[in-house]
Write a protein that binds this DNA or RNA. Structure first.
Length: 768
DNA sequence: TATTGTGTCTTTTTT
DNA sequence: AGACACAATA
């Protein structure tokens, strides 16, 4: 990940400088030394803003500020972790660890756990992720008889979320509603809030909103935290929303020892309610602020910086800045034209192999960035085939898989039995004999009496409408309460094991999934739990679940191995890599969807492109495909309009145009410089596209989490090949569809059965 | 009435 | 491909 640059940036630093700050340039140094009063650091990409921020905190410690009085708010857990590590290196790990560093959400959750009784919550409150939120919205819409065809639940969830991030309560929203859509939102919003209250649950936005509510209404509590956090800093300030802005303001007043760092050109979370005005208006909000501009870029070559500047200058709305570098010009930017995403993936893998050897680089030096998580699949496959180790940041998180969520929902239910959402999940999986009708009726009663759902279940016999369902309802409630009763006497993992078994989930997963992958995933939660518990002995179930909800799953264990990093452009913010690959620069993908029709959205996409370009230190390779598999079919794709914003003078175009590509499929260029090197990929690659592509993927390769171990077991599955299946016997492959993990093979078994099998899961072996 | 099977959209980006 | 709403069964 981002490395601490050890070489001093300013050779002019004077001899009597404090040892600590002598590694900073004058602006960075000013930033680090100004620890009292408001400070605004406008930091261009690669200008050492994290460096300034970490040195600033180290300097505070040196000046005698107590670590627990320091609060550092970041946007991602990764950034928080990294900051803490860097400070630890500069000072003392013990001290660094006592600093409050974390995301807005996790820090506020921590405070709310302690203080939530003042705003009417129980400290066992659950935290809903966006999936949960969507389900609650849908359920509320159902209760209110609002058509989900007419009003998309996703949109309504988005509107509610936006309202919260703008600090608009449902009462206020209701008063100010303008049209028929807003009218529906107001209805849902109000009922949603009531249900969340009743459920003793908060969604991500509530963590912000409720902190404000807490501070607004409880002066003593507010003062307590004002005193505790005497020095506050906020990273990526351009991405704060209204709620975050207000929460911070409440916290730092009246001392205003606040330091914010940001770059309006890197604001990429407008869609999440980020308000760029927060950074633009900082000087107005905090009079007498010291404003520091960091404009020297230490990260990238002159060429890369030129490209970045050329791109961003197309945005109308931006603060004038002058980002410059003393770094050498470096290599041209390579613009690679590919036929399709498989070609793009192979060419990327091959280019990495080349560069890895030629430049004596480590795999850690490479990053592959893309706009959407779905793009990772073909690349993973290509990297596995090329034997290149990789790690994926984000993506389809383990904790969002259905079976994992179902299991975790049971656990969450034990901590907070009042949470209606987790009741309804647990009721459905495993099937409990409680169906739609029963749930609807019970839900209506719960709303009417303003009671938690599970309470209604328990007292089902009291309600005539529920008499038909009473047996199943009370049985379910008993079960949950029985679990909760046992929970105090067990260790975390014992409890989890008990729940998995006795909820019936274990049996259910065995029944519906013969391969056992799903059960294994559920069991892996228990493993993960034990691992976390081993590191942190007295962690409670509540704390564990909070971590799962708010902290991106740390694929840690393998964090230190040498591997290429794959991630979305959003996750890449704040990071840097010597060699960066930007994929899928195509109209409709990047800029995504219809964002080219809306100037604001287009500018945000452009800033995202800017972020991508500026991640690169030494070399940048951008690729675009002539066609791409999207929405279930292959569609023609045209180059992104952003590519026109790059100048020919520093760009080297390689690869064929899509029309000429046919004859030379499988041949491609992979060089970084303007000396195109042609080479054949693999052994049996040079084939026209339409011939069934030979799959050389074993089960192990396809399921392997990392490519480190990817030994090539030439499975050779192709049309006409004879295969063996453990249960179906032998058969002949009729057809192959899809690619990567989604590859499906149609097999005609000698038993007469025609089966569609997902290659990833079907343990097929080739019969000679 | 609960469960299972079949068709239809869906798919940004993150906490 | 995967979730989800709706329709057919048990």
């Amino acid at each position: 990940m981002g490395k601490l640059k050890l070489s001093p940036q300013d050779s002019q630093s004077r001899a009597y400088d404090s040892h600590l700050l002598s590694a900073l340039n004058p602006q960075q140094r000013l930033a680090a030394e100004t620890i009292d009063g408001p400070v605004l650091i406008l930091a261009g990409a690669g200008s050492g803003k994290t460096r300034a921020l970490t040195y600033r905190i180290a300097y505070m410690l040196e000046q005698g500020v107590q670590p627990w009085n320091i609060l550092a708010l970041t946007f991602t857990n990764k950034a928080a972790r990294e900051m803490q590590e860097r400070i630890a290196k500069l000072t003392d790990p013990e001290l660094a660890h006592s600093i409050w560093a974390g995301t807005f959400h996790s820090i506020f959750a921590r405070i709310l756990r302690i203080e939530c009784k003042y705003i009417g919550y129980d400290s066992a409150f659950s935290i809903h992720d966006s999936d949960d939120t969507l389900r609650v919205v849908k359920s509320v819409m159902q209760s209110l008889h609002i058509s989900q065809q007419e009003f998309s639940p996703q949109m309504i969830r988005g509107s509610i979320s936006k309202a919260k991030n703008d600090c608009v309560s449902w009462q206020q929203y209701d008063r100010e509603k303008t049209g028929p859509y807003e009218h529906q939102v107001a209805l849902v919003y109000a009922e949603y809030e009531k249900r969340m209250r009743r459920s003793n649950a908060m969604d991500f936005d509530d963590l912000l909103v409720n902190i404000i509510r807490l501070f607004d209404n409880n002066e003593d509590v507010l003062n307590k935290y004002r005193q505790r956090f005497s020095h506050v800093s906020v990273d990526e300030y351009q991405d704060t929303n209204q709620a975050q802005y207000r929460a911070v303001k409440l916290l730092v007043e009246p001392q205003n020892n606040i330091c914010v760092v940001g770059d309006d050109a890197q604001s990429i979370y407008r869609w999440r309610g980020a308000d760029i005005r927060n950074i633009l208006d900082f000087e107005r909000d905090y009079p007498n602020a010291t404003v520091i501009r960091l404009e020297q870029n230490y990260r990238s070559t002159g060429t890369i910086l030129k490209a970045a500047n050329d791109v961003i200058k197309n945005n109308e709305r931006q603060v004038a800045k002058n980002l410059w570098t003393e770094n050498p010009e470096g290599d041209n930017i390579v613009l690679m034209h590919c036929q399709d995403e498989r070609h793009e993936a192979r060419s990327t893998a091959s280019s990495i192999s080349d560069c890895h050897m030629r430049e004596f680089a480590t795999y850690n030096d490479f990053a592959i960035l893309y706009r959407t998580n779905a793009q990772s699949q073909p690349i993973e496959e290509a990297l596995r085939m090329a034997g290149i180790p990789y790690r994926i940041v984000g993506g389809v998180s383990f904790f969002r898989r259905k079976e994992v969520k179902d299991f975790v929902s049971w656990l969450k239910l034990l901590v907070n039995p009042h949470d209606d959402e987790y009741v309804s999940r647990a009721v459905a999986e495993p099937p409990s004999g409680i169906g739609k009708k029963a749930m609807e009726t019970a839900q209506a009663i719960a709303s009417e009496h303003d009671q938690p759902l599970l309470q209604v279940f328990r007292e089902a016999r009291k309600y005539a409408e529920l008499s038909r369902f009473a047996n199943n309802l009370t049985a379910f409630a008993e079960k949950v309460f029985a679990f909760a009763g046992k929970s105090s006497t067990m260790s975390l993992s014992e409890l989890a094991e008990m729940v998995l078994l006795e909820s019936g989930l274990e049996k259910r997963l065995k029944d519906i999934d013969e391969e056992g992958d799903r059960l294994r995933n559920a069991e892996q939660v228990i493993t993960h739990m034990s691992e976390v518990a081993a590191e942190n002995e007295d962690i409670t179930l509540t704390e564990y679940l909070e971590q799962v909800a708010l902290v991106e799953e740390d694929t840690n264990k393998s964090e230190n191995r040498d591997a290429v990093t794959l991630m979305t452009l959003h996750s890449a913010k704040g990071l840097e890599f010597p060699y960066v690959y930007l994929l899928g620069l195509e109209q409709g993908l990047f800029p995504l969807g219809k964002s080219d029709q809306n100037p604001d959205e287009l500018e945000e996409e452009r800033r995202l492109f800017y972020v991508g370009i500026t991640r690169a230190e030494k070399a940048l390779r951008i690729s675009t495909c002539g066609r791409r598999f999207r929405f279930g079919e292959t569609m023609p794709s045209s180059p992104s309009q952003f590519l026109q914003e790059l100048d020919d003078s520093y760009t080297t175009v390689v690869g064929e145009s899509a029309s000429r590509s046919r004859q030379s499929s499988g041949m491609f260029d992979s060089s970084y410089n303007s000396r195109p090197v042609r080479k054949t990929y693999g052994r049996s690659r040079a084939k026209p596209d339409d011939t069934p592509v030979r799959k050389k993927l074993s089960f192990e390769e396809l399921t392997a989490k990392s490519a480190g171990a990817a030994k090539k077991a030439p499975g050779g599955i192709a049309k006409g090949v004879k295969v063996q299946h453990p249960t179906f016997g032998t058969g002949t492959v009729q057809a192959i569809n899809g690619s990567g993990d989604n590859t499906v093979v149609l097999v005609n078994f000698s038993s007469g059965q025609l089966k569609k099998l997902v290659l990833k899961f079907a343990k097929l072996t080739v019969v000679k």
